[in-house]
């Protein structure tokens, strides 16, 4: 295991070369390390169980999961990189490229569609400068040109009684009407201008 890890480390990009992007695994803050260790302790029977929670912590901190993360987490959990990579590629929540400052997930499934979610999605897309047809058929997040918004048409968010709904960052917005959208975007823009770009 250790040999494979060393091998992959030497073949990956040299962190001293300023031209290559920095590897996430070289920039793990102490606070994240502590959270990761606490997470592993919650799975006394098998630390492999910690792989999903660690990927969540990682993505919450860095915004996405790069190749160095996959190798680092695999090494930490005594796994092969493929064991982590196959999770990142299977679970829709994980991503391998950076998102914009705000992530908008509009519910697409039946109850929300009955209540007008396609119109809501189109309106969001137009307002942030994305082709709604392209976005509706895109697998994963699609980023707006301004860098403020990522959008995705997602499956059921389990709030069908207050349809149509969307999840923006961690917050659920319910009973949406097309008129709500400019107000929501304006508020998000103001918020993201007040906070630095690091996730």
């Amino acid at each position: 295991m250790a040999q494979i890890s060393n091998h992959t480390e030497t073949t990956s990009q040299n962190p001293n070369n300023s031209q290559t992007p920095s590897r996430q695994a070289d920039n793990i803050p102490a606070s994240l390390l502590q959270q990761i260790n606490e997470t592993i302790a919650r799975y006394p029977v098998s630390k492999r169980s910690a792989s999903l929670p660690i990927l969540h912590l990682w993505q919450n901190h860095f915004g996405y999961i790069d190749d160095s993360a996959i190798e680092w987490i695999a090494h930490l959990l005594d796994l092969q990189p493929i064991n982590i990579y196959e999770l990142v590629t299977f679970y829709p929540w994980f991503r391998q490229s950076p998102p914009a400052k705000n992530i908008i997930r509009v519910c697409r499934t039946l109850s929300c569609a009955l209540a007008g979610s396609y119109e809501i999605f189109d309106k969001f897309c137009h307002a942030i400068g994305i082709d709604p047809h392209l976005a509706a058929h895109h697998d994963g997040l699609i980023n707006s040109p301004c860098g403020n918004f990522s959008i995705q048409f997602v499956e059921c968010l389990a709030s069908c009684g207050t349809a149509p709904v969307c999840l923006i960052n961690d917050d659920l917005y319910e009973k949406l009407t097309p008129n709500d959208i400019p107000k929501i975007l304006e508020k998000l823009k103001t918020n993201s201008e007040q906070t630095p770009n690091t996730p």
Partner: peptide, 10 residues
């Protein structure tokens, strides 16, 4: 008792 979060798969 611990919380375990999923990752978006039905």
């Amino acid at each position: 008792v611990f919380v375990h979060q999923g990752a978006g798969a039905y």
